[in-house]
């Protein structure tokens, strides 16, 4: 099938075409450009929810239950589940779907697992693009799950409208939570597996922490107790997501937030491109090697070397 045919099928709502198009983007095939042009004009309708939190916090189960609930209000839901690639074999074992079994036969739900393939921010490289594709396809809600290995996964908050941060009693004390840098990005906090010992302590610690860090903010992130396996607390989670959505709308923040994300992406890509252009320049490369030697032989300092290189930049076309 040609790319035109795929896009036509995509427009007709064909899941297989959607799936194939995601694959093209994920692998960076040459048709990507054409697809992204097509997709770019059609995004902006879907509401995006991000779910992050440490491994084993029950993110996938939470998503399964949440999606099931949301199905009574929305017909079309897309889910992106990120899992880490092995740094040794570059393979990946994508197991998030196991906990979403109950969604496999739900019409309107599309789940895609993505391996990080070396990306280090908790998301797969093309997560944003795949979310755009789902958006253009007509998904009303898109839920993105980070890998959750414990490091700071703040990137997610730039991709979505509402960020949910999930903890479990085992996640450790409040200090640990602060360190993880996750309190700053959450719009909603969840203490999952709340039947386990230590859940109430974590709950109050989180509440205090958030009250302190959000003193001057209009939006005070709620903390919710859930037991995803038993479907407990999911209703409240849904309610808070809607509250957050209303808050963004009423304060004209949704557009602002999304615009910020666009700016960020533009800056990132711009910077990356510039770097690429710079390093492709033979003159820069030659000068760089020279500077390295000079610094190594202690003829000049690093700072002086940088200055020399900057001077060269303006000759790059």
């Amino acid at each position: 099938m040609t790319i035109k045919e795929y896009l036509k099928k995509f427009e007709e709502g064909d899941e297989r075409a959607l799936s194939k198009i995601i694959t093209i983007i994920e692998n960076g095939y040459e048709e990507s450009k054409e697809i992204l042009e097509y997709i770019g004009k059609r995004t902006g309708k879907a509401y995006r929810i991000g779910i992050t939190g440490p491994q084993g916090s029950g993110k996938s189960t939470l998503i399964a239950k949440l999606a099931k609930r949301l199905l009574s209000k929305f017909k079309e839901i897309g889910i992106i589940a990120c899992d880490p690639s092995s740094p040794f074999s570059f393979g990946a074992l994508l197991g998030d779907r196991i906990r979403m079994n109950e969604l496999f036969l739900e019409k309107g739900i599309f789940i895609r697992s993505m391996a990080t393939r070396g990306s280090l921010n908790g998301l797969a490289y093309k997560t944003k693009e795949v979310a755009d594709i789902l958006d253009a396809f007509g998904k009303e809600i898109i839920i993105i799950e980070t890998i959750g290995v414990g490091q700071v996964e703040v990137e997610i908050s730039n991709l979505v409208d509402t960020t949910i941060v999930v903890f479990v009693p085992e996640s450790g004390d409040g200090i640990q939570v602060l360190k993880a840098g996750l309190t700053e990005i959450g719009d909603i906090f969840v203490v999952n597996k709340s039947d386990r010992i230590g859940a109430d302590i974590l709950f109050y610690e989180l509440k205090n922490l958030i009250e302190m860090s959000y003193q001057n903010s209009k939006w005070k992130p709620p903390v919710i107790l859930t037991q995803a396996v038993n479907n407990y607390g999911i209703e409240e989670l849904e309610k808070e997501i809607i509250n957050h959505y209303n808050y963004l709308i009423e304060n004209n923040l949704l557009e602002e937030k999304r615009k910020k994300a666009v700016i960020r992406e533009l800056v990132n890509n711009f910077e990356n491109e510039i770097l690429k252009i710079l390093w492709q320049s033979e003159r820069v490369k030659k000068l760089f090697e020279k500077v390295v030697e000079e610094v190594w032989e202690k003829k000049i300092t690093i700072e002086e070397g940088v200055k020399k290189l900057i001077k060269e930049v303006k000759y790059v076309k």
Binding site: S19, T23, S89, L93, L94, R97, N101, F104, L105
Partner: peptide
């Protein structure tokens, strides 16, 4: 996985419908 493939594992008790749906969505 250790041989470098990306592997989706869906757990137990899958019906043929579930298997094929998953295969298509995951391409």
């Amino acid at each position: 996985r250790d041989a470098g493939f990306e592997v989706i594992y869906t757990g137990l008790h899958q019906t043929p419908e579930m298997i094929v749906n998953t295969a298509i969505q995951e391409d």
